[in-house]
């Protein structure tokens, strides 16, 4: 009983600031501006399917790159001494001490024409457009969300019992097999939550594309623009996005469960 009471403040918080807005978004999606029931908003949202696909593509690529970068790194960190681990983990969170928007502006300056990186590349004869393209958007996302991939992976990996690895080695597994049969299957829950924590915010983000991207908009930017004038259509697009993300989470979780059972 006591534990339930302790959860009360959070339950109230959730109800007021998560549940009610969610219900409002759903009801708004099915209303026109004068409050009558309609499906028009959803038809309008369907018109933006290409933007949806583009955003999901960017989010998927960013998530994949985050995973490829974070996985070996988390593994290495988890093999270090406890003290080094906590220092490195702290260093990884250092960028998050500063506001996201400021860091984004930092990238704008770094990548712009005649900025530091461009000047350096020009010196060795490479002339490329660094900013205002899809690559820059992916870079911004990876930079922003990499810690969210490293954290869960590291937590899971540092909990892997060393004796399991030793047992596998004793039974004659080589390094690769130890990884394939022991470390990887045990790290799957970390991969699943890492993917979720990176994919979800990068699919729904706005501003990154506005600052680092060119004249293409992501679905988050479209929703933001709609909310300024027509909240009903904005809600409908947001609702579609939420459904897509929910499906994605369900699928990844399913995959995670199967893998875990397979061991």
């Amino acid at each position: 009983m006591r534990s339930k009471k302790l959860a009360l403040p959070y339950a109230v918080w959730m109800a007021a600031f998560t549940l009610v807005p969610l219900i409002l978004i759903i009801t708004n999606s099915f209303q026109d501006s004068s409050g009558h029931f309609t499906f028009d908003n959803l038809y309008k949202a369907w018109e933006y399917r290409e933007v949806f696909l583009y955003s999901l593509e960017i989010a998927l690529v960013s998530t994949l790159i985050c995973l490829l970068l974070a996985y070996p790194m988390s593994y290495m960190i988890s093999r270090m001494s406890e003290k080094t681990q906590s220092i490195i983990i702290m260093l990884i969170t250092v960028p998050m001490w500063m506001n996201f928007l400021l860091r984004l502006l930092g990238w704008v300056i770094l990548l712009q024409n005649n900025g530091p990186i461009d000047t350096l590349l020009n010196l060795i004869g490479i002339d490329v457009q660094l900013k205002d393209n899809d690559g820059a958007v992916v870079l911004g996302m990876v930079y922003e969300y990499l810690p969210f991939m490293i954290m869960p992976l590291h937590t899971v990996m540092s909990k892997i019992d060393k004796s399991l690895i030793e047992a596998a080695q004793d039974l004659g597994s080589n390094g690769f097999n130890v990884f394939r049969k022991v470390v990887f299957p045990l790290s799957v829950p970390g991969i699943v939550s890492g993917i979720t924590m990176v994919f979800v915010p990068s699919a729904s983000t706005f501003l990154v594309a506005q600052y680092l991207g060119g004249n293409k908009k992501m679905i988050g930017d479209i929703i933001e623009q709609y909310f300024k004038s027509d909240q009903n259509t904005g809600s409908a697009i947001a609702l579609c996005l939420m459904v897509v993300i929910l499906l994605f989470i369900i699928i990844t979780n399913q995959f995670g469960d199967e893998e875990a059972v397979g061991v």
Binding site: S33, K44, E47, N215, I222, Q225, Y226, K228, S229
Partner: peptide
């Protein structure tokens, strides 16, 4: 009018999309 304004807003968002 609200009708025309919303139409303009929507058309403009379409340009971005």
């Amino acid at each position: 009018s609200e009708d025309v304004y919303n139409y303009m807003q929507e058309k403009f968002i379409d340009i971005g999309a």
